[in-house]
């Protein structure tokens, strides 16, 4: 998608799992500026990085620095460690 002058260059689907659902809808499409990274998006949604254990972009493990692309899906899972 070409730039439209309003800083909205791409759409990314966000999927929030388990306790992270409190930060938004379980599945939502967001419009983002080109170059937005996983970390930027977490900040935009308001999720502290410490509450995220697994970050997947299109089903692949991703780091916070990874820039997102139009049409991708970001899935976030919290840390679970009880026994």
């Amino acid at each position: 998608m070409a730039g439209n002058g309003y800083g909205v260059d791409m759409k990314v689907e966000i999927r929030l799992f388990a306790s992270l659902r409190k930060y938004g809808l379980p599945q939502e499409e967001m419009e983002l500026a080109e170059g937005t990274t996983v970390g930027n998006l977490l900040e935009k949604i308001g999720i502290p990085p410490s509450e995220v254990a697994i970050t997947l972009v299109n089903g692949r493990h991703a780091q916070e620095e990874l820039p997102l692309n139009d049409g991708e899906t970001l899935a976030l899972f919290p840390p679970i460690a009880g026994g």
Binding site: A18, S19, S50, E51, A53, I54, H61, P78, P79, I80, A81, G82
Partner: peptide, 17 residues
Amino acid sequence: SNIYGGGQQGIEKDLGN
């Protein structure tokens, strides 16, 4: 290591079991 990274605690701290 991939799942937990450097984290020290999980959501059970708040949610219990």
